[in-house]
């Protein structure tokens, strides 16, 4: 009997030891079961049930497995999805009470608060946050546009006169410039000037490289446009100018070129509108302009408002220039009105 009793006691002790050993394990199993149940509930689309189930995960100060944080954040997200923002805030704060530095909880709290505000307030706050940087970038964009708008018509005129020149080396050179700069991507040209030329011992600051690339590219395009404009002027105009004793240069300056202004305005206006947008390409050669600023804001906050604002600023620019060019075109053609 004694022996039997001893065995029974030993067995009981052994079992209780085993149970003690297995206890944490079973609790972990319980937690997994809770998450599993919650997932099932969510799969059924029964979100309140999922929340109830998840709340069974006990409060823990030493949350080694992260189950507590996981469950409460999940609860908060579900409450967020059910648009119960106060409850979602409360659940998140439960986590923050234990782990005040939990970044997931902090971010989530921010987006819950944001969600509680009216949309336009959120947008307005984003605008105020992004605009200073974007406007700084926009100033650089406008600077680039204006510099190119000063350089390229002069370069274009030179190329156009070269193309129609009877002096072969000059006309071949101008043909070559057009061939090269119209035939390769602007992005490649900018890369070559900024990253490629240093290997040949020529180094430019980003701004100089940007102006050089844009200026040459747009001179080549405007060159062909201006050449077309000059050649579209009736031949009799040149003859009449010559007949009163004008030199070729005088005839060009006084008679031919002034008549091209009206015809050139629409295509040149087109080019300049394209230019405003092409300046975005120089963001690739370390220039901080509007596109680059927008990109930086977008990447820092992952907030699409930065991109929308940049688009709006570009639209303001292009609209303004379209309007200006229409005015100039009208002015240039005033003599054609009968």
């Amino acid at each position: 009997m004694k022996v039997l009793c001893g065995r029974v006691i030993r067995t009981i002790l052994l079992f209780s030891c085993l149970l003690l050993l297995l206890a944490p394990l079973s609790r972990a199993e319980d937690t997994e079961q809770i998450f599993q149940d919650a997932n099932d509930a969510m799969a059924r689309g029964d979100l309140p049930a999922a929340i109830t189930v998840l709340k069974k995960v006990p409060f823990s100060k030493t949350d080694d497995s992260g189950a507590f944080v996981r469950s409460r954040m999940q609860v908060a997200r579900l409450q967020f999805a059910l648009k119960d923002f106060p409850a979602a805030t409360a659940s998140t704060k439960e986590v923050l009470a234990v782990y005040p530095d939990n970044s997931e909880a902090l971010n989530f709290l921010a987006s819950v608060q944001k969600e509680q505000k009216p949309r336009y307030v959120v947008f307005w706050e984003d605008c105020l946050r992004f605009l200073p940087n974007l406007l700084k970038g926009a100033v650089m964009t406008i600077t680039l546009v204006f510099c190119t708008m000063l350089i390229s018509p002069l370069g274009g005129l030179l190329i156009a006169l070269g193309r129609i020149s009877r002096f072969k080396p000059f006309s071949v050179l101008c043909w070559f410039i057009i061939w090269l700069f119209r035939g390769t991507p602007l992005l490649l040209q900018l890369f070559f000037i900024y990253y490629g030329l240093p290997s040949l011992g020529i180094t430019f600051k980003p701004f100089t490289a940007a102006i050089l690339g844009l200026g040459l590219n747009y001179s080549a395009y405007l060159g062909e446009i201006i050449r077309g404009g000059i050649q579209s002027i009736e031949h009799g105009q040149m003859e009449a100018a010559k007949a009163i004793g004008m030199s070729y240069g005088q005839a060009m300056r006084r008679v031919i070129i002034p008549q091209t202004y009206k015809r050139l305005m629409p295509p040149i206006g087109n080019e300049f509108i394209a230019l405003i947008k092409d300046t975005a390409l120089v963001s690739t050669i370390a220039m901080v302009e509007l596109m680059r600023s927008a990109d930086q804001m977008f990447n820092a906050y992952f907030n699409v408002t930065a991109l929308i604002l940049a688009a709006l600023i570009y639209l303001v620019f292009t609209t303004f220039f379209t309007f200006i060019f229409e005015k100039i075109e009208h002015r240039a053609g005033i003599y054609e009105i009968r």
Binding site: E239, P258, Q259
Partner: peptide, 24 residues
């Protein structure tokens, strides 16, 4: 060109299609 221009300035010419400068 200088001499040709000087000669042309002493000889006036009127064309069939007038060729007035429309922008002036």
């Amino acid at each position: 060109p200088q001499k040709i221009c000087a000669l042309r300035s002493e000889i006036g010419m009127v064309f069939q299609h007038f060729n007035l400068f429309p922008h002036m």
